[in-house]
Design a protein around this nucleic acid. Structure first.
Length: 103
DNA sequence: CGTATGACAACAA
DNA sequence: ATTGTTGCCATAC
């Protein structure tokens, strides 16, 4: 396990603010590993040691919500002013979310 | 040791 | 826009 790299990625996620939605790829790139979008998802799936990460502010490049937690995630996002429509994020207030889910 | 799977993504055709 | 292919990391079998 590459603690340093993982910690960096977790740090990026932790830095997400209210109403700010990001993607796996963007997070990976920000962490300095443009190709490791998959690792980002894995880290979130496994869970976090101590902290509680804002997992609901992370969606895939298409804006699709996390399978199995869509309802919950949608609720959390809407509570922060994010526009969610039919299971996908359409727009976000602080959105680093640029890659509109080709509707 | 080789394959398949998963909260993914970029690119080609 | 949709479908396939390739890249990448970690884990399970």
């Amino acid at each position: 396990m590459n603690a340093a790299r993982d910690a960096r990625i977790l740090d990026v996620i932790r830095a997400l603010d209210e109403g700010e939605v990001s993607t796996y790829g963007d997070i990976a790139e920000t962490a300095g590993h443009p190709k490791l979008s998959r690792l980002v998802g894995r880290l979130l799936a496994v869970g976090v040691p101590d902290d509680e990460l804002p997992w609901w502010r992370v969606v895939n490049a298409a804006g699709r919500l996390v399978p199995g937690h869509e309802a919950e995630q949608a609720a959390l996002l809407r509570a922060e002013g994010v526009t969610v429509r039919d299971g996908r994020v359409v727009a976000a207030p602080v959105g680093r979310f640029r890659r509109p889910a080709r509707p």
